[in-house]
Design a protein around this nucleic acid. Structure first.
Length: 418
RNA sequence: CGGGGCAUAGUGUAAUUGGUUAACAUUUGCGCUUUGGGAGCGCACGAUUCUGGGUUCGAGUCCCAGUGCCCCGACCA
């Protein structure tokens, strides 16, 4: 994409009142636009990041046999009343009033709806197991939306639900999802800590959260620093404290602020029984479907990534999820035409090779401004074409997170592993 | 929902503590000069000072109410 066509612009000053790093940088660089507290619109750059994460998630969900759906945001009150979650807060939290329909829930989650759909198709043990996911906007009445994308009233989420004939079958799949989640976060460049958390009313056992260590986070976890995922607990439920010995390896436990990027938990038969989702088993018995639920906050994940990957100058996107792979910058010069020709050739060749390029072809922008903006936006590879580089018949290549630059000839361009 | 802070051109700030034409920077537009880290000079555009009441000869400034934003706490299926 040519940057001259990108309608967003970077902002020099930090947005008034903002303290959260992700809120400041994402707004300054033009990824998101704040509509109100906890509600953000995604602009071209932000949407590209969102889509890349979504695609990774899609691939990994499909690799564990997930089938994608897109359920409605507006949800009938009656379903929520069946599980007693309308009056107890959830349904009441966010609500839409529509003439002729009375009150309609604005989906904060989709257990009720999906279970209701599934019960119409699943009749026999032969129809199970079943794994269904969606990528959707959720609405929640947060009493205090805060920290940019980390806690919103409206946010993007992937929610996967699994349906099983038995607890044992559920547990097998639960472990598969754990592995898939680790793959997702790894591809996003993030280290996560699998953390035990409370059952939140669904189960007496632990549930699991995928926590990202970050100063800007609002959770606190107790964890063993030896192996990031062999022992960690949310501080809310942990009997251990920082300085205690790890129950697994006796190393000294640490405490840190963190961001909950995902959580997974058993639902048992709570929803299937309430909604009436039963199947007939091999033995002829009618049984409630055993369910599991697996959430991953996509917009929050973007916030978490910025909290983790930034420096004084701006964002440093991990390669797989950066809005573009390469930021090609044409610096101003007296004789711009030969430089421009060269830059456009590079632009063309990279795109032909399937590499996303943001090409800063803007006129009337100083070298300083272009460079500062590039650092703020945080695209992983930077290529500069200038008078300096043209004299040596080459271009300058630099990684966003490194200081070193390297001169490369046009011929060598294809051999670089962007 | 409790506590604290803030609200002034698109953006970020100022305004002698109640005094008259609301200032500066930036952005935007035009012109000239610059050209490797948010460049310089000049000109121009841009404001019902969050909203509604009140006090006063006079309110951006004081008082009351509301709304919004940020932070702390509670809550977070």
């Amino acid at each position: 994409m040519k940057q001259s066509q990108l309608f967003t612009k970077t902002i020099k000053e930090k947005p008034k009142g903002e303290k959260s790093i992700n809120a400041i940088l994402l707004q300054r660089a033009g990824f998101i636009y704040k509509e109100m507290a906890g509600v953000y619109s995604f602009l071209p750059l932000g949407l590209r990041v969102l889509r890349k994460i979504e695609n990774i998630i899609r691939e990994e969900m499909e690799s564990i046999s997930g089938q994608e759906v897109f359920l409605s945001v507006l949800q009938p009150k009656e379903l929520w009343q069946k599980t007693d979650r309308w009056s107890k807060g959830i349904g009441k939290n966010v609500m839409y009033k529509c003439k002729g329909n009375g009150e309609i829930g604005l989906g904060p989650t989709h257990e009720e709806m999906l279970t209701d759909i599934v019960k119409n198709y699943v009749k026999s043990y032969e129809d199970l197991p079943l794994y269904v996911f969606q990528i959707q906007t959720k609405f929640r009445k947060e009493l205090r939306a805060r920290s940019g994308l980390l806690r919103g009233k409206e946010f993007g989420m992937k929610d996967l639900y699994s349906f099983h004939t038995s607890e044992k079958d559920f547990k097998n799949y639960y472990e598969k999802v754990k592995k898939a989640y680790f793959r997702i976060f790894k591809r996003c460049g993030l280290e996560v800590i699998l953390t035990e958390a409370s059952g939140a009313g669904f189960t007496k056992e632990f549930t699991h959260e995928f926590q990202v260590l970050a100063k800007g986070g609002e959770d606190r976890i107790i964890f063993c620093p030896k192996l990031t995922s062999h022992f960690a607990q949310n501080k809310e439920i942990s009997k251990f404290k920082s300085g205690n010995k790890c129950p697994v390896c006796k190393k000294v436990l640490k405490e840190s602020k963190s961001i909950e990027a995902a959580n997974i938990f058993p639902l048992g038969t709570k929803y299937s029984e309430a909604i009436g989702a039963f199947f007939q088993d091999k033995d002829g018995q009618k049984k409630p479907i055993v369910m599991g639920c697996y959430g991953l906050g996509i917009s929050r994940l973007i916030g978490a990534l910025v909290e983790v990957f930034h420096d004084k100058k701006g964002i440093i996107w991990p390669e797989e999820i950066a809005p573009f792979r390469v930021h090609l910058i044409l610096l101003p010069a007296k004789k711009i035409t030969p430089l421009k020709k060269k830059a456009e050739k590079i632009y063309f060749n990279l795109q032909k090779a399937g590499i996303n390029v943001l090409y800063d072809d803007r006129k009337d922008k100083s070298a300083g401004e272009k460079l500062v903006e590039a650092d703020l936006i945080g695209i992983p590879w930077r290529i500069i074409v200038s008078e300096k580089t043209l004299q040596k018949d080459s271009m300058e290549i630099k990684k966003r997170d490194k200081e070193k630059t390297k001169l490369v000839k046009m011929k060598e361009l294809c051999s670089i592993n962007f």
